[in-house]
């Protein structure tokens, strides 16, 4: 009898622990749903957006995401948990002045901004405005972030932005974007081109140097 009680007790404890760990793990999961989206301006000069097509991936030389790589599916590399060891809150990576307490969502954290579900479209529109006709902007989510500075948090989104021009030119970089406005806060990982025989002197001046200046600017 004693043994049976002990057995039931240990099973209960074991299950409890497992459940606890599982619950903890699921809370610490970073919610990331990367979806490449293309933004461009149509003939009516309106910004249009849609899921990036396979042809665009090819033109932009983006290795297509796994669901478009059927052939590779059976030998895709083991998933890399790039968030291993990171502090997580609200299924977002915490950066900045962070500590373990902030993982507990009962720990109060005042926020500078709120998440606007339209942030990506705002970003896409902002980037496509002013571009030549037929230019495309491709955007994909990378990491959802809460950055903490001076005790206050800000929701941000790490993204990859790739531009594709009609003549085949492309440019790509990563950016940290405000989750409310879609404004770019910082960029990095810009493409490094060799481009031999590059044309120089991109600024056209009305007269050549030495300058004739009647700008009115005076200096001290």
């Amino acid at each position: 009898m004693k043994k049976t009680i002990l057995f039931i007790l240990s099973i209960t404890v074991a299950c409890g622990i497992t459940f606890y760990i599982k619950k903890n793990q699921s809370e610490k999961f970073v919610d990331i749903k990367p979806q490449w989206k293309t933004y461009s301006i149509n003939k009516e000069e309106k910004v249009v957006s849609y899921n990036t097509t396979q042809e665009e991936f090819q033109q932009a030389r983006i290795p297509a995401p796994p669901d478009l790589q059927d052939a590779k599916k059976d030998r895709a590399p083991a998933a890399i948990n790039k968030f291993a060891g990171r502090l997580i809150r609200e299924k977002r990576v915490l950066t900045g002045d962070v500590n373990k307490d902030l993982e507990d969502e009962d720990t109060e954290l005042q926020m500078h901004n709120a998440i606007n579900p339209e942030w990506k479209d705002n970003l896409g529109k902002n980037l496509i405005i002013g571009q030549d006709e037929n230019t495309k902007v491709l955007i994909v989510e990378q990491t959802p972030v809460i950055e903490v500075r001076d005790g206050k948090g800000r929701y941000m989104e790490e993204v990859i932005i790739t531009f594709l021009k009609k003549n085949g030119n492309r440019s790509s970089y990563r950016a940290m974007v405000d989750s409310s406005s879609g404004q770019i806060l910082d960029t990095w990982d810009r493409t490094i081109n060799e481009q031999l025989m590059k044309k120089r002197g991109g600024i056209i001046l009305p007269s050549n140097m030495p300058f004739n200046n009647d700008s009115g600017i005076i200096t001290r």
Partner: peptide
């Protein structure tokens, strides 16, 4: 096989 005249590049965002 990139159609890039007088160019090679390192695209850091997609590591290529």
């Amino acid at each position: 096989n990139c159609d890039e005249e007088n160019n090679a590049y390192y695209e850091q965002s997609t590591e290529s």
